[in-house]
Amino acid sequence: MKILRYSINGSSYYGILGRDGNIERLKGSPLEGLQPAGYVDHLGSARVLSPLYRPRVFGLGYNYRAHSQEVGKSTPTLPVLFMKPSTTVIGHEESIVYPPDGENVHFEGELTVIIGKEARHVSEADALDYVFGYTCGNDVSDRVFQRRESEFGCLLVGKGYDTFAPIGPVVETELDPSNLHLITRVNGEVRQNGNTADLVYGVSALIAYLSKYMTLLPGDHIMTGTPAGVGPIKPGDTIEVEIEGIGVLRNKVLSATDVTP
């Protein structure tokens, strides 16, 4: 089942997307139940929004073996975690704003997990029961700032600019996350071609690990890391993250000077 958040005539809704492009509108958040509102909209008349409004976002570093190898890092012995501010999140076809002082900004295509119910001290065996669904993500990163911060053991601004977490376009609720093909394209050229089978810590392990130390809340996003092939982007570029069974997340990069205040 594919769930999306969308707007029509300035009002936002959640709905279930059918193969014919029809959207069965829901009464409220799908995290609270899939109750039909009695209306049917069409994708062609809707603007697709990020799956949830300003969620908590957890990020993972070096969680694909091939990516660790390409950047000269050893395989981590525990999940390398950071957080991205909720204001980084944008939706499908929204613009990534290139920082005015940016020098080396990279794309990172990622499978993103959305938590469906409160999770604390969850076992790996039960972890997937707490998942609402899966979507595409792009962990946009300012490498210059990221490296400066990392020298002092922290990481926030390099990952935390507004618009640095495109998420979407839909949430697929029925998916096995252990063996999914992921492709990232820049201007139509394939830059990443990976599979979640290469994850160091899979979805179940990540949920169990995080919930051991903190309560995961409905709507929390876990960006699971990026495959090999990350690289720079610039204003004018179009980035596409495609994940098998979910779809394509597409975002254009704009210069900060082209954005209306």
Rank of each mutant, 00 (worst) to 15 (best):
R5C: 02
P261G: 11
V97C: 06
T224Y: 13
I115Q: 01
R5Q: 06
E24M: 09
K27M: 13
F164W: 07
V171G: 00
I114N: 00
K84E: 04
Y13I: 06
K234H: 11
G229I: 11
N195E: 06
E24V: 14
E244Q: 15
H42K: 15
M223V: 13
S204K: 15
V241I: 15
R25G: 02
L216N: 04
Q69Y: 13
N179A: 15
Y39K: 15
V230A: 11
Y201S: 02
I243Q: 03
P235C: 03
Y130S: 03
E94P: 03
P227W: 09
E103N: 11
G236K: 07
L52R: 08
S255K: 13
D198M: 09
R250Q: 12
K159P: 02
P177Q: 13
D237F: 09
E124Y: 01
H121G: 00
Y134E: 03
P235R: 09
M214Q: 13
S7F: 05
T260L: 14
A165Q: 08
K84T: 06
R54Y: 14
G59M: 00
N63E: 01
E189C: 02
F164M: 08
S50N: 04
L26R: 05
I114S: 02
P218W: 14
D142T: 06
H221M: 15
A119F: 12
V131P: 06
H92P: 00
R47T: 15
Y39D: 13
E240S: 04
Y213H: 14
L52D: 00
G153I: 12
R5V: 04
T238P: 00
G109T: 01
Y13T: 05
V131H: 07
I90G: 01
T196S: 09
L210A: 03
G33R: 11
V170K: 00
S12H: 14
G116Y: 13
F58G: 00
G225M: 11
G28E: 12
Y64C: 01
D101S: 10
I3E: 01
P30A: 09
V190P: 00
L216R: 08
M1Q: 09
G158A: 02
V140P: 03
K27N: 03
N138L: 09
V200G: 03
H67N: 03
L4T: 02
P177F: 12
